[in-house]
């Protein structure tokens, strides 16, 4: 907690004392070349190499290589359209739903090749869960929302076990106290922030190893956002988390490492504190100081 507060302060400082002298005229040119910083770690949970993503003829991701360590929170930041969401959605093959999308390169969850054509995506997605930008609870009861994953994967054989999973998941998502008396009322009747926490509870109910979060707070007010961020910090004790965010403060508060994407390329990956205090790449600096984005 202390560390995150520290980072938030440094951002404030950086914004006021931003050096404007650096050349930022042609970002496209600067984006060429290798990723700077520390994209790779030892014993990664997920490891991606030379990832290329195409939408039809258009290439959206260029040569991205990145590791995500066990129980690490990696934030992905960058201007709109930089490919960070696309990259995130490759990690549990959510891009499969888009007909024209093609992924190349090596993407591994531990030893498992994610893009092996023979791989069944169902167990993969049970291991790599996802929370989306807009809260999207099922139009079912709160209980059924959380119980859905364990039910379809056949994780439980008795009602009591299911009850237990639902309660634990809701507790871990910090929602139990608010909804324990109305588990059978519809999940869509909750407030936006509660819905998003319900979605997180639904994801962790199947005990995934990795949770992908695609701008989980962009549709929420600051108080709900704060709650989710707290929750991410707690969850990182048990889960590996990759989070895409538009809010640099959020990246600074919740993540261990931050990856900066620009026009489909991974520009820099570094310890979060370093990215926000002393980035290695000019583009990163330009972005975090708000000169574009």
């Amino acid at each position: 907690m202390e560390a995150t507060v520290g980072s938030a302060n440094t951002i404030g400082k950086l914004n006021s004392e931003a050096p404007v002298s650096k050349a930022t005229a042609n970002y496209k040119e600067q984006a060429a070349g290798k990723t700077v910083g520390i994209p790779f770690v030892e014993h990664p949970k997920m490891s991606m190499r030379d990832v290329q993503v195409y939408y039809g003829d258009k290439q959206a991701i260029f040569d991205v290589g990145l590791d995500i360590g066990k129980n690490e929170v990696v934030a992905m930041i960058g201007p709109s359209g930089c490919g960070k969401s696309t990259f995130l959605r490759c990690l549990n093959r959510m891009n499969d739903t888009i007909d024209i999308c093609r992924v190349e390169g090596s993407l591994k969850l531990e030893e498992l090749d994610i893009y092996d054509p023979k791989l069944d995506v169902v167990p993969l997605r049970a291991r790599v869960g996802m929370v989306f930008q807009k809260p999207n609870p099922f139009p079912k009861s709160i209980y059924d929302n959380v119980a859905y994953g364990p039910r379809i994967h056949g994780l439980v054989s008795r009602k009591s076990e299911l009850d237990e999973i639902v309660e634990t998941s809701l507790r871990r998502a910090g929602l139990w106290e608010e909804v324990k008396d109305r588990l059978l009322s519809p999940g869509t009747g909750l407030s936006g922030g509660q819905q998003q926490r319900l979605c997180i509870a639904r994801t962790i109910a199947v005990s995934p190893e990795v949770i992908l979060m695609d701008e989980p707070c962009s549709a929420l007010d600051p108080i709900a956002t704060a709650k989710i961020e707290e929750l991410i910090a707690e969850l990182s004790a048990n889960f590996t988390i990759a989070i895409v965010t538009h809010s640099m403060q959020q990246a600074a508060r919740v993540s261990d490492r931050t990856a900066y994407f620009h026009l489909g390329k991974l520009i820099e990956v570094n310890e979060t504190e370093k990215v926000f205090t002393n980035p290695d790449h000019e583009l990163t600096e330009a972005y975090i100081t708000g000169r574009f984005g």
Partner: peptide
């Protein structure tokens, strides 16, 4: 809404489910 589909796919529902 596609979000419902994504939600179900995201926790590992098969296409038929």
């Amino acid at each position: 809404p596609p979000s419902i589909r994504e939600a179900a796919l995201g926790i590992g529902a098969s296409k038929m489910q």
